Amino acid sequence: MNFNRTSRLFCSLAVGIACQAVAQDQTPVSVTKPLLDANESRFQFTGTITSERVASLSPRVAGLVAKADAEMGYSAKAGDVLVGLDDTLARMELREEELNLEAAEADLINSKRRLDEAVNLGDANFPRSERENRETTYRMAQIAVSRLETLVATQREIVERHRIIAPFDGMVAEKMAEVGEWVQTGNPVLRFVDTESLRLDVQVPQEQLALVMGSDTVMVEIAGSGEKAFEAHIEARSPQVDPQTRTFQVRIQLDNSSPNVKPGMSAVAIFKPSSEDASVFITRDAILRTADGQVMVWVAESSGGGFKASRRIVQTGPTSGDYIQIVSGLQPSDQVIYQGNELLQEDQAIRIVESVIPIERER
């Protein structure tokens, strides 16, 4: 008899029987990984759209409204005339000062000519005292011209102040005076709004401080504008929390605002966490309860070249279809047992017969 051959055959049979015994001791299970859903973790805050620049325009001089064509909704560019006051008297005074200036300039020219004559003749042919008198006359004429130039410039400014002009590109939001009304300085005549540079102010609870501080962009939805949700930039965050409401203000710059977006509209700012902070969902088949009522799942862990069952106590959130949210107790990389999990024991050897990749769940 060939003992070597018999020994090898016996060993092969022994190993096969042992492997079969080990396989029989391993409980077959099916596993899946948690489904990540950042949309479930998003936070929405409603706020009001405001303009960066809103101006209450009032006249710089008192007067009678002579022109007021800028009605509510009127668009204007910076420098456009919105309201005109009656400037008849101011223009008449301006004309008078302009005539005085013309006369003074003529007198200056004549004084300069007479002084030049005296200088050209020289002291030998022209009395010194007379030349000095002409120098004084010329100097006084220069002063008179300078003074009248100032008066003309002042009167032109007074005429200009009879107009109310647009301080920036925008639109008339409210008109508060009509033609024929007398208006005083400091009393608003128009409310003018910059409709291009818009922002959204929202109040965020202090519990979401970390979420907001870790993000520079948000999605904005504006109901009734006909516009799709768009990305916007966080311009500023309030440095303090309101002690009454326990909220802090976040200001969002609406870079993608359209003509349909107006100041005063309501809008929603949607803050989404990073993928690391996304909500975790698992199939409801994986959920079990302990004798004391705690919610648990079984997870497949590596063990000596195989796998073993490990119990995890979890906290659950809302249910959505066949999935349930796991608030705590699971990691996105865990292999969750959802079939063959009914009779498992801690550290029990298991054999993975099926590994399912989760797909996006229906909403």
Rank of each mutant, 00 (worst) to 15 (best):
N125Q: 14
P28V: 06
R156M: 01
E117K: 14
Y338Q: 02
L35Q: 06
W298C: 05
R156W: 00
A144E: 15
I313R: 07
L64M: 15
V250F: 08
G304V: 04
M171R: 14
D292H: 09
V193P: 08
N341W: 01
M176F: 10
K112R: 05
E93Q: 12
P332S: 01
I143Q: 12
E97Y: 09
S238I: 05
P127D: 14
V189W: 03
V353M: 10
P259C: 11
F168Q: 08
G264Q: 01
V179P: 12
E135Y: 10
E360W: 02
G340N: 01
N256T: 08
K228N: 13
G321C: 02
N125A: 15
G16Q: 03
S238Y: 00
M72N: 08
Q184Y: 12
A118H: 04
M171C: 10
D169P: 10
N110G: 05
S146A: 11
A232P: 10
G186C: 11
G306L: 01
R91V: 03
S56G: 08
V65D: 14
Q26S: 02
V159P: 09
A90R: 06
T195M: 06
P263I: 09
T283V: 02
E227H: 04
E98H: 09
M219N: 09
E52P: 06
S279E: 13
M72Q: 13
R91G: 05
P34W: 07
I143P: 00
S258W: 01
I352C: 10
T290H: 07
